Each structure stands twice: as C-alpha cells, then as structure tokens.
Computed example of a mutant assay.
Amino acid sequence: MKDESHIQQGASYGRFVAMIATSTLAMFALTYLNSYASDHIFWSQTRFWMALVMGAAMIAVTLCFMWGMYLSRRINFLILLAAACACCQYR
C-alpha cells in the first residue's frame, strides 16, 4: 500500500493572492510616509494606481521565483498575463 501523505500537493493560489493583496496594501500605506504634515494625508488616486502597478510587478517576480510551488502551468501563465496587462496599461 502506498503512503500518499508524502505526495507534494503544491502551494495554494488563494494564499498567493492573499500575500500579494497584503503586500499591495502595505505598499499603498507606505507611500504616505513621505508626508510632511498630517494635513497632507488625503486620498490619492495616483498613489492607489501606483500601488496596483507595484503589486502587479510583484506578482510576476514572486511567481517566477516560486514557479515550482504552483503546479498548474495554465493558471501560472494566466496570472503572468494578467500581471503584464496591469503593468502595461499605465504606460
């Protein structure tokens, strides 16, 4: 009888999305560190879009380094395509 408890299942895409979303939110918050005074802190659509572009770039870099952990090549390529589209639309 084979022991199937040692078969590698691969990493969870849900955890990958949670990691990227948390990092993108942290990058957005960090863009406000350059504020000189508290009254300079207000909603900035530019900062929001730049955080999304940085998050998309982070998706590509992270996925390329962790390619072996995510077993579905089709999903991996779709994620990379979505990240490339997000980065390129703001040129």
Rank of each mutant, 00 (worst) to 15 (best):
G10D: 01
N76R: 10
T22R: 14
C87W: 12
C64I: 11
E4L: 02
A82R: 08
S5H: 02
F65I: 06
Y32F: 07
A29Q: 10
I20W: 01
N76K: 08
I75D: 08
H40C: 07
C64N: 12
F65K: 07
M27R: 13
L25W: 11
A29N: 09
G10V: 02
S35A: 11
L25E: 13
I41H: 00
M69R: 03
A86N: 14
M58T: 14
S5C: 04
Y36A: 12
M27C: 10
Q89N: 11
Y13N: 03
N34Y: 04
C88N: 14
V61D: 05
L63G: 03
S44M: 08
R74A: 08
G55N: 08
L25A: 13
V17N: 10
L52Y: 09
M54W: 07
E4S: 01
H40E: 07
C85H: 10
H6Q: 04
G10R: 01
H40D: 06
F48H: 11
M66V: 03
L78I: 09
A21N: 15
S38T: 04
T46V: 15
S5Y: 02
A84I: 07
A56R: 12
M1T: 00
S44Y: 05
G14E: 14
G55A: 07
S12M: 02
I20E: 08
S38C: 00
G55L: 10
A57V: 12
Q8F: 02
Q89C: 12
Y13L: 06
Y70H: 00
K2W: 02
G10N: 01
A21P: 13
M54N: 08
R73L: 04
S38M: 06
F65C: 06
A84R: 07
S23A: 11
A18D: 11
I41K: 06
A29T: 09
W49G: 10
F16Y: 06
W67Q: 07
Q8I: 03
